[in-house]
Design a binder for these strands. Structure first.
Lengths: 264, 264
DNA sequence: TGAATTCCCGTAGGGTATACGAGAATTCAA
DNA sequence: TTGAATTCTCGTATACCCTACGGGAATTCA
């Protein structure tokens, strides 16, 4: 995280890169119609760089997708990459929007589950699967997300799932934001958890087990009666991974229960 | 995050540091009873280092709390710090548990709100306030938290608030974990948001405003009917900060509604 | 007075992103 | 065919980060 991002540059340039593979409804009259033909031929293109960045981050971690590492992988000099991408931050934006767009969420008019809860469930599944395919996403800040097609498609889908509840525009939007935050945060934590296991070569259960004598040596029963009660009633029986999955499932269900009850 | 943490070392040593200011119920018979008296006098102690680390991170960001920066602040050589703390990661654990313990959450037997929801609300308030005092917390991974007194006090309090619902041990624990994840994640995002504003010198609203021509230039109404509907119904009217705060409030209330409805 | 103990800390090494500017490749016009 | 215009290529240099290692300094005790 923990990472500083979006060193701004020109927003116009960034948007143009994010939407580079999409029709542009309004013609951009600004550019002096790039003289194609003159000049040295590029040996790469933006998609090559983005694709390789994602692959490298998937396989060897986000740190491996450094400008130097990427350049080596592509067989060019480090500074060559700056021909295709203005900065590391912008590249990360492009990588993120790319994988956000990989989620298979039905667009407008496409077939989808009938129940709104199942539609939310689909969002949840697709988002978690995305984090699982690209664990490094958990290390990327979402405060200023890439404003590209992938991000917008996700927001659109979730909003459309909630529109049928008849909650009113402001409440619908608020609810969508709450659900997205819950789902994305939990998926991110789940991914981060695996990343930590991979980086340390130790499962989280093993990590906790190593600290088992906490309970004998430092834990004070009088200061922790609730934990003690839960403990004696076998409330702690699953692995950390199962506990996280259960709490995610439970929390999402209760959140949706609560939203459903607001239906007029 | 963003950050690799907990490079393990010896768990025993780490626990001893975390619990350094607490009574130890069981005597540790291992240590050969450190010969006090011989040897050079230390010029610092662990608490000095931890306190300075927190202050530096509060005032100038987590990056400023580097070993070098800390040493300069304390007027010693960088390597001197390793006399007091085994590594940067362990220091971070100590800093985190320290501020976790700063939350004013009533312990067992101490006065607290009657209603369980108000008790949860207190957890929420205290946790958010903690993140606001120490924005850098949002950059620290919580996957393997410091297993110290501060962390345990928080878990204990939340569990104790939910015990009165009569849900059964496993469900109580699951619910507590869900609430903690929701609250902590949202508080972390809120802090991270401010950190980004501070680091870039630009409000998040200004950042979005800079990208306003997205809507004219790239946004395709036909592919985003739900967003368009919400837009035309004035569903987007608040600032990003207000939107986040509202969605947090709304989501927490709905989550607690849902949990309350599970009461047997 | 010398041994034992403990703390202090300089150096060295392998990472990071990117500003700058010179050089190489390609096309087009004269 | 030549020279100008254009575009891509990339070496160098900078200022950080953590910490292993090992020698030196301070203090107490026998």
């Amino acid at each position: 995280m923990s990472e500083r991002r979006s060193g701004e540059g020109q927003p116009d340039k960034t948007l143009a890169l994010l939407w580079r593979n999409h029709r542009q409804p309004t013609a951009l009259a600004d550019e002096p119609a790039r003289k194609r033909g003159a000049g040295r031929r590029p040996s790469l293109n933006v998609d090559d760089v983005v694709r390789t960045g994602i692959q490298l981050a998937d396989d060897q971690g986000l740190a491996a997708a450094s400008m130097g590492g990427l350049a080596k992988e592509l067989g060019v000099g480090t500074m060559t990459l700056y021909t295709y991408v203005p900065s590391k931050d912008e590249l990360l934006d492009l990588m993120v929007d790319q994988v956000l767009g990989e989620r298979e969420l039905p667009g407008p008019g496409e077939p989808r589950p009938d129940d709104w809860r199942e539609q939310v469930e689909l969002y949840s599944q697709q988002t978690r699967a995305m984090f699982q395919r690209h664990l490094w996403l958990s290390q990327v800040s979402t405060i200023r997300p890439p404003v590209g097609p992938g991000m917008l498609a996700g927001r659109e889908y979730l909003l459309s799932a909630l529109l049928g509840l008849g909650l009113g525009a402001l409440e619908t939007n608020t609810a969508a934001l709450a659900i997205a935050t819950y789902v994305d945060s939990a998926a991110s934590l789940e991914a981060e958890s695996q990343l930590v296991e991979r980086a340390t070569g130790q499962t989280n259960d093993a990590w906790w087990y190593e600290r088992n004598d906490l309970w004998e040596t430092y834990f004070d029963v009088d200061r922790h009666p609730a934990m003690t009660t839960i403990w004696h009633a076998d409330g702690y029986q699953s692995s950390t991974r199962e506990a996280a999955a259960e709490s995610y499932r439970y929390g999402l269900d209760r959140l949706l229960d609560g939203i459903q009850a607001m239906k007029p």
